[in-house]
Nucleic acid binder design. Sequence first.
DNA 1: GCGGAGGTGTCGATTAGTTGCCTCCTTTGC
DNA 2: GCAAAGGAGGCAACTAATCGACACCTCCGC
Lengths: 258, 258
Amino acid sequence: MQTAPLHAKPVPAASPLLAGSNPAQALLLTENAALTNGPPLLFQRLTAKEREEVLREGQKRVVYRGKMLFSQGTPHDGIFLIESGRIRVFYIAPSGREITLAYWSAGNFVGGPELFGQGQHVWSGVAATNSVVVHLTGKTLRRLIAQIPGFAIGLIEGLTFKGKCYSALAQMLGTRSVTERLAHLLIHLADTYGVKEEGAIAIGSAFTHADLAHMVGATRQWVTISLKRLQEQGVLKAEKAKIVVYDLDALHVMRGDR
Amino acid sequence: MQTAPLHAKPVPAASPLLAGSNPAQALLLTENAALTNGPPLLFQRLTAKEREEVLREGQKRVVYRGKMLFSQGTPHDGIFLIESGRIRVFYIAPSGREITLAYWSAGNFVGGPELFGQGQHVWSGVAATNSVVVHLTGKTLRRLIAQIPGFAIGLIEGLTFKGKCYSALAQMLGTRSVTERLAHLLIHLADTYGVKEEGAIAIGSAFTHADLAHMVGATRQWVTISLKRLQEQGVLKAEKAKIVVYDLDALHVMRGDR
DNA sequence: GCGGAGGTGTCGATTAGTTGCCTCCTTTGC
DNA sequence: GCAAAGGAGGCAACTAATCGACACCTCCGC
């Protein structure tokens, strides 16, 4: 997730959102599987025609990896609908400590919890991969809500969903130890990105220790130490940019649900 | 905040909500003053007639101090509108650790983040004082939303507001130390319940150390220690059921905003 | 091939925060 | 009036997690 220069990949011409069939995901720290498996897609309830209309109203923007989409403290105006790529939403405290709320994929929108603006962003958003987003201003949103009933419902569903995400994160951070949170995250990663590999599950995602640390709300070093400890216990094996989980059940025990 | 038996106070006959003029508050751990000063009241946008209609549709319920209003894990159906009293919304992890989201007063509703049900409660709600609530089921909510436009907007505002609360809490828990969080809370308490007293501010609220601990996400003992430390520094003086703050500025420094 | 940047592993010191236990003070019930 | 119960507060031992620093490794651009 470094911000190193990348060969700018060509931006796809046709919007995948028009098809309305992408397996949208949200990657975040939670114990509620329902939250991460099926975030409600904003476009799900719309006809092809309505989808086109929404996209026409918005302003398409290409965001390269490492570039900021919006920043905490800056004025808020509307939302960003993700067409492709992955957006990391995070917050940095005055002290420099950082917490990642979630990684959002195509079909979701970011830039909440407010919809119409009139405030400031409380989170920041950065492109975790080269991404394409559609910016819908507060003004445009009002118009679309009035015009397309399904769009309004989709937005409310989206807001409700985000509410659940925030609240799940707060619960995790408030009541679970870092170790438990890490176990949670690993189970979730295994679920989402895991590939079965002769009895074990390989997580091939390119998350650095720092990325994981931000997701569980801990320091990079502590994640390194914890992973090493888990490795010594035979629960998993950490190779570079790849984690192989041998004993998923042990993680569940650690998490506190078995 | 103990659940000791209380002499049941008479329940007021007329609903204060009909007047639509109570100074509603939400007590929670956040750095955003706007969040706590003015939570949007559900009834603010309604005419007296509409208010009556909503109250007629709901089922009134008296909840005595210490009694549960809803519990995490139980099926969710609709929301509870607070007519009088104070409801504490909290979560208990399997390990027994507990975190308080907020204390909500008259004019607010609890039982989110979902509106219509079809899920389970993720938080629990308990009466912190003898309270009167109006239960609006998911079905009733749908009807009211369709009938009264202002009610729908009020609900969306409420949801958005709750989203901000959750997200503020997550940010606090993820990036601030317990000490900083306690400073936050004390400032906020001084703001809300504080009474000026010859240069100092007296917080007379009957919050126990355990209550404070649950609000900042720490143990009762650590709050005791921290308060004692602050007392040694001359920042405040903790008497029983009363905290006198001498040096509010020191708390601000501790919080990291000066 | 060299230098830089970013990621990882590790160590030691320190602190933040927890756990368990104990005492004191109120309240309640008889 | 007194015993029992339970909450509130305090002390001490312990551990979880942070902080800062540094060495190493690998990938990448030049």
